[in-house]
């Protein structure tokens, strides 16, 4: 398979998507795959079901519109592309053509966060804020490439739209062992238990959060890492329980603008449910256009890398 740009670094997630779609294409003869010229992950589906594969070229708006038209007619369309363009260029089509009539269109894509070194044109950093604001939309952000397949399988029975955000990380880590956790849309995963502080995160920063928890464990600090991979609907009960069980100490870490993403979702639950916090910190992308660099360098530069996360947790624990 020819590899261009940075997609080659996402090989395992790509193959999971490709294999899963090809498998689902067989069991669902109304499954369609559409893309605006981002087809590398989709070769297997395209070869098996060419008549249900549509590449519209560089045209995100019509790509989502066509998906909606297919869904109106009883089909299950999956739109695959780069999220900075799908989430913004086609935002109105997603909102008005997909979410308004509540159609089962799946939007799945890469480049969520400061990943891929394409510069700010190519980073989707506001996408979760945009998607979470849409009525009827279910919003997910997946770190573990193996989880993508499970989410896609579950999505086949959903009656409304779904957004699946992926990164293009170099550290394309398989975070969870097979069968280690029940994966269910709408339910968070306690990736590591702990009592002192809860570190809520999603997507590509889950593995960073686990590394941070490891480092602090050596100091005798017990960090609970919670993967809230479904941002909408948010797992309120899990948030309530974690706040209660870790002394009201909360840190949110995400590869998204720090206001409008998961931190805001968690803060909404805290306010709406009247939860008592002892300390709260949010780590994410500040209000800047981030520039170039590899993923880790950019996270470090913008204050939500590994070291910054360790420091934030120490502050929250009063030991910083």
């Amino acid at each position: 398979m020819p590899v261009t740009f940075t997609f080659g670094e996402m090989l395992s997630a790509r193959s999971v998507i490709g294999t899963t779609l090809a498998e689902l294409g067989e069991s669902h003869d109304n499954l369609w795959v559409l893309t605006p010229d981002i087809g590398a992950t989709l070769v297997e589906f395209r070869e098996k079901y060419p008549e249900r594969f549509v590449d519209v070229g560089l045209a995100e708006q019509v790509c989502v519109g066509v998906a909606a038209g297919l869904a109106y007619d009883g089909n299950i369309p999956v739109v695959s592309g780069m999220l900075p363009f799908l989430s913004m260029r086609a935002l109105e089509q997603i909102r008005t053509d997909v979410c308004y009539p509540n159609l089962p269109v799946k939007i799945i894509g890469t480049h969520g966060g400061l990943v891929g070194n394409g510069g700010s044109t190519h980073y989707a950093v506001e996408d979760l804020a945009l998607m979470c604001s849409l009525t009827n939309m279910t919003v997910t952000s997946i770190g573990d490439p193996m989880m993508v397949g499970e989410i896609l399988r579950q999505s086949m029975s959903m009656s409304g739209p779904l957004y699946i955000r992926l990164a293009v990380g170099k550290s394309d880590k398989v975070i969870y062992e097979a069968g280690q956790h029940d994966v269910e849309i709408g339910k968070g995963i306690v990736a590591r238990d702990g009592d002192d502080v809860t570190l809520f995160t999603h997507g590509t920063t889950v593995s960073q959060a686990l590394d941070v928890a490891d480092e602090l464990a050596a100091d005798g600090k017990s960090v609970r890492v919670v993967d809230l991979f479904t941002l909408k609907p948010i797992d309120e009960e899990l948030i309530v329980r974690c706040v209660d069980e870790t002394g009201g100490r909360v840190v949110v870490l995400e590869d998204h603008v720090a206001y409008g993403g998961l931190a805001s979702r968690v803060a909404d639950v805290v306010a709406d449910r009247g939860l008592k916090l002892t300390a709260f910190e949010r780590l994410g992308i500040p209000q800047v256009y981030a520039g170039f660099g590899d993923d880790e360098e950019l996270r470090d530069k913008h204050g939500y890398g590994h070291k910054a996360t360790v420091e934030a947790i120490r502050r929250v624990l009063g030991t910083g």
């Binding site: 519109g65 007619d73 053509d97």
Partner: peptide, 15 residues
Amino acid sequence: SLGHGLPLAVGMALS
């Protein structure tokens, strides 16, 4: 919202 109908039509026609 104007400009949305013809893309929908393409999807329905493909189907």
